[in-house]
């Protein structure tokens, strides 16, 4: 069954792209969740949808519009979140729903577009060769950059004030994070859809944080989990003919529940151990 699956070219392509995107999303997800920026991913994907709709209406290549718009939006959202005077949550919600509204509005004016539908819910099996190559290049850039900046990203995530006080420039690394997030959203949108990409970013991080206690192990665990969940989601999707994006999100959710249960059981066991200890 699985062997048969991999005789199709488009499936192999989907796996390659999907695994790379899952990896990017899970790496950045850890940083975004810890920085309390989880909502930025969600906001950005909506902005991306708006940009794509406008591009489609104007007949411009979608990614060429989406990439710069999302990168600019990422810097903007990061600024807003850093500035404590503005209510960050509300600002992100306003921007993302406005962008979504613009997207839907333009789409209806220019006639219903099937391509837009695929951006909302993803179309991993329909990725063209050129799209796939673009995704692979961007994903490799994101992964390589993440490892180059890994220690610095840890430092500015853990304690930004200390980093600034001792001469690191957190604003630079925050920009790097924003840029990488934007790129991940762009490629993730293509396969997972705007509505589901933030799940790919957030789930692996919070799942591995149930059990892992070191930054490095959280990163490694999220990466592995994300790839496994993608794999499982794809298999389910292929076998039961379910939508790919939704299947991947649900396997991620299942992994989260499993990890969460294990962490609860672990706490219970340590507690009962100490109680027995006291009784003796």
């Amino acid at each position: 069954m699985i062997a048969e699956m991999f005789t199709y070219n488009f499936i192999i392509r989907a796996f390659v792209v999907g695994i790379l995107v899952s990896l990017c999303a899970s790496l950045l997800g850890v940083t975004l969740v810890l920085k309390r920026y989880s909502m930025i991913g969600d906001g950005l994907s909506h902005v991306g949808f708006g940009a794509l709709a406008v591009a489609a209406a104007l007949n411009i290549a979608p990614l060429e519009v989406a990439v710069p718009v999302i990168v600019i939006a990422a810097f903007l959202l990061l600024r807003i979140s850093e500035n404590s005077k503005i209510n960050g949550d509300a600002a992100i919600a306003i921007i993302s729903s406005t962008a979504l509204a613009i997207g839907v509005f333009t789409a209806s004016l220019s006639g219903i577009n099937t391509d837009l539908n695929s951006y909302l819910f993803g179309s991993i099996l329909a990725t063209s060769n050129s799209d796939a190559i673009m995704c692979v290049i961007l994903a490799v850039i994101v992964i390589v950059m993440y490892f180059i900046f890994y220690n610095k990203i840890f430092a500015v995530t853990f304690d930004e004030n200390f980093a600034r006080a001792t001469g690191l420039k957190p604003s630079i690394y925050n920009m790097v994070i924003a840029l990488l997030t934007a790129l991940t959203i762009v490629i993730g949108m293509r396969i997972m859809g705007t509505l589901l990409i933030s799940a790919l970013i957030i789930f692996p991080a919070i799942t591995s944080m149930r059990l892992c206690k070191r930054f490095k192990s959280v990163i490694v665990c999220s990466g592995i989990l994300s790839v496994i969940c993608f794999f499982a989601g794809m298999l389910i999707s292929y076998n039961y003919d379910t939508p790919t994006g939704a299947s991947v999100v649900l396997t991620n959710c299942a992994a989260f529940l499993v990890f969460w249960l294990i962490s609860i059981v672990k706490v219970k066991i340590t507690k009962s151990k100490t109680i027995r200890h006291i009784n003796l």
Partner: peptide, 23 residues
């Protein structure tokens, strides 16, 4: 610092924290 805004749930080992001072 007197008080760091370090989050309660941040996963990091002592070694990782100390090393970040060398950065």
């Amino acid at each position: 610092p007197q008080q760091s805004k370090i989050q309660k749930d941040f996963p990091a080992s002592v070694y990782e924290v100390v090393l970040s001072g060398c950065l």
